[in-house]
């Protein structure tokens, strides 16, 4: 017994010594590798974490600026920033929290930008099948979709557990959109006893993937759209909820600074990122790294790739070009 304990303690000591050595070695390497590199800290709402990490990687490759990404819920990040967390950029899942930071005087009023539009989806298990053979009418848009979704929801609330998962409408924009949709279908009051509420869209999805519920309203971005983006889960059906059924899910970011940021003109729209000259040109710019990152997120290249992640672009191609071509009308205050 005692010898076992001694052995375990020895092993622990050796392990910890080994890991300390590793950490120091790693630290040294980092310092050598990026002696002059700049680092920005970005906070992102959980639903946009996967695309942001991919974009941040591309951004670092182009500019050499390192991006540290922190993932949490919008509400948590908001509370942290309000109490002094040093994030350079905050990507919220809604527009309310960025606006609240502006109202609280933490952020300059012009530092808020819409960066993506979320889309609502309904997932249901393969044993749910409303028998529907009618085809959509062209005269009455979404009538068939309404009936179809209505039948699906009804089926979900009467099959197996009879539970239906949504994100909390008070906390998550997608939860609110789900409520909008169920209200639109005139079924919100009826499904109350069947609702299980996740703290966010990912948890609602988790209730579904672990088999607790047969159907869930989630973000279109969290289901398998592009096989390179997400791993697929077998035996699920996904339908995109028509946008007419819910209030738009606009996601906005803020540059966490009291002084006005310079975003225009967008250097990335005129930049061939495969050209090394372009990269050299970028390093000569005097734009702050965090401003450059936001420019990148709003650039045509990023915005036009948003559908691949299940989002709609929030900056139209035209607006994006206009921003690029407009002259330096805004100076820092």
């Amino acid at each position: 017994m005692r010898s076992t304990i001694r052995l375990v303690v020895k092993a622990l000591v050796i392990c910890s010594l080994f890991s300390v050595t590793l950490v120091f070695a790693q630290d040294k390497q980092d310092k050598q590798g990026s002696r002059n590199a700049e680092v920005i800290n970005v906070a992102v709402a959980a639903n946009f974490a996967a695309p942001l990490k991919a974009y941040a990687e591309q951004f670092s490759r182009i500019t050499g600026i390192e991006v540290n990404v922190t993932v949490a819920s919008s509400g948590t990040l908001f509370a942290q920033i309000q109490h002094g967390a040093k994030f350079d950029v905050f990507l919220s899942a809604d527009t309310a929290r960025p606006q609240a930071l502006i109202d609280a005087g933490k952020v300059h009023k012009d530092n808020m930008y819409q960066y993506a539009q979320g889309q609502l989806a309904f997932v249901y298990a393969s044993d749910i099948s409303p028998h529907i053979d009618a085809k959509p009418h062209k005269e009455e848009p979404y009538k068939e979709e309404s009936i179809y979704l209505y039948k699906l929801v009804k089926q979900v609330t009467t099959t197996g557990s009879g539970k239906l998962a949504v994100a909390n409408p008070l906390l998550a924009p997608y939860g609110e959109a789900a409520k909008n949709t169920l209200t639109h279908l005139d079924i919100w009051d009826e499904v109350q006893p069947s609702l299980v509420v996740g703290k966010n869209i990912l948890q609602a999805y988790q209730y579904f993937t672990t088999g607790g519920v047969k159907g869930a309203f989630i973000a279109y971005s969290s289901v398998n759209i592009d096989s390179t983006v997400n791993t697929s889960i077998p035996n699920i059906h996904v339908i995109r909820v028509p946008e007419a059924f819910y209030q738009p899910i606009t996601q906005a970011l803020v540059i966490n600074s009291n002084s006005k940021a310079v975003i225009t003109p967008n250097v990335f729209n005129t930049l061939d990122t495969s050209d090394t000259k372009g990269v050299e040109h970028l390093t000569e710019l005097t734009i702050l790294p965090s401003h450059l990152f936001v420019q990148y997120l709003l650039s045509d290249a990023v915005q036009s790739s948003l559908p691949r992640w299940g989002y709609k672009r929030s900056v139209s191609a035209k607006a994006s070009n206009e921003k690029a071509s407009s002259t330096k009308s805004s100076e820092p205050t």
Binding site: S73, K163, L170, L171
Partner: peptide, 22 residues
Amino acid sequence: GGSIPGETQVLSIALYEQVEAL
């Protein structure tokens, strides 16, 4: 839990939701 009022929405969950809802 699934935050069902009266069934699984305990005090700590209600508290968390209020903090998140500002």
